[in-house]
Simulated scan of single mutants.
Amino acid sequence: MSIDPIAATRPRNRRQLIIEAAGRVFSERGYHAASMEEISAGVGISAAALYRHFPNKYALFAECANVLVDRLVAVLDELPGSADPARVLGAVTRVAVTHRAAGGLYRWEARYLEHADRRLLRAKFARVVGRVTEALEREHAEPGAELRAAAALGAIGSISMHHVSIAQRRVESLLVASALGVAGATPAPGAGGAARVELPAQPVPRTRRAEILAAAVPLFARDGFVKVTNGQIAEAVGLAPSAIYRHYPNKVDILVAACLQAAGLLAQAVDRNLGEVTEPRDALEVLAATYVAYSFEHTELTSVAEAEVVGLRDDLRQPLIRAQREHIAVWEQQLLLVRPELDPRQARVLVHAGFGVVVEAGRRLHWEDTPGHRDAVAALVLGALGLP
């Protein structure tokens, strides 16, 4: 009996290896920038072999989008219904950290799913949020358990949005503690407990270049950078498509300008509000309130900057990465003064956890900008940092 040498050496879990490799590529490069050739190379097979498992890139993407949330649902289904928040959040954290490299596609890239697939994914995530909410309601009598559950999951999910190198057990312990800090916070809407901050005024588009940028940002936020055409942007401004090129050589230049504007507005806000603050704890309260206010005030701009930066060339991305690192360094310095038991990497992980809280809590509140919502989310951020 003859044996096909290719079949004999083909690993039985090849489909799973493909999904893992694809999840990493989609997370790091974005859906549109990722290629089947790059994914197949990550598995060590030809593109033709990859197409034997998945007919096209979208089918592979949709599969990747479901795999991690299915793991979360499965691990929670294994727990007894009476499991406390620490056990529930610990189970979620282990899955998130184990599959850290592939988790980034959920925050922004899932918007490229077709409507039916996106609705299914949301239903699965709703089950995860619901299970955490139930655990919190048994443990804490305070209102707002669903908001705290979503925010706690945001703190955990933040591990996929950065590359801080830290041992798995160590980061799991840190993230569980952060998520429990969020879960135990009492963000009563309208409490007025957050620091009072001011933001720079939204730039008024006084030039044609600024008008183009202002028109492009909401389109990018709604449809994604790749799907928006120069013709759509020109129509929104009232220009002929060819006129765009007199102000921006190509569409990528508009995106870079949007990202730089987002970074500049945040830096100005931090400088303005931290000016007279001397105590580290007060500084963290101001930073949390500023970041929350900025995120609610400039939701479209910040979502574009965070979602689309992964698709930029390295040379275009570097100034934006430097700006982010400078911003995080301000938080890190103050957090280490308040919590000297942390090391710099732990502090950095917690700062990112705070950012993750803002994204998921903001989404849960539909980014409805009210003083009460800002106060509530700022309290959750402080909880993520381990500050009562």
Rank of each mutant, 00 (worst) to 15 (best):
A141H: 10
T98N: 10
L113V: 10
R100M: 08
E134M: 00
T133C: 03
Y112P: 13
P143T: 02
R118Q: 14
R122Y: 08
V97T: 03
A96K: 03
V128K: 01
K124V: 06
E139Q: 12
H99G: 00
R122C: 06
L105A: 10
V97R: 02
R111D: 11
V132H: 03
A135I: 00
E114D: 13
E142V: 06
R111C: 08
R127S: 11
L113Y: 12
L105F: 14
H115V: 13
L120P: 08
A102Q: 11
P143Y: 01
R122I: 06
R111E: 09
A126T: 06
G104E: 03
R100F: 07
V129G: 00
H115I: 11
R127V: 08
V97Q: 02
A110C: 15
G103W: 05
E114A: 14
P143F: 01
E137T: 07
T133D: 07
H140W: 13
A126I: 01
K124R: 12
E114S: 08
R118D: 14
R119F: 01
V129H: 08
L136N: 06
Y106L: 04
E137L: 07
A141R: 05
R127W: 04
V97A: 03
R107E: 04
R100E: 11
W108M: 06
R131M: 02
R131C: 00
G103A: 03
L121C: 11
Y112R: 09
A135E: 03
L113W: 11
H99K: 00
R111N: 09
T133N: 03
E137V: 07
E109K: 04
A123M: 10
G130D: 04
A126V: 01
D117L: 11
H115A: 15
W108H: 13
R100P: 08
W108I: 04
A116I: 05
A116C: 05
V129Y: 11
P143H: 00
E109D: 13
L136I: 05
Y106Q: 04
A116H: 13
A96Q: 07
L120H: 15
H115N: 13
P143I: 00
V97S: 07
V128A: 06
E137N: 05
V132F: 05
A123G: 15
R127G: 06
Y106C: 01
R107K: 02
A126Q: 07
V128E: 01
G103Q: 02
V128H: 03
R138Q: 12
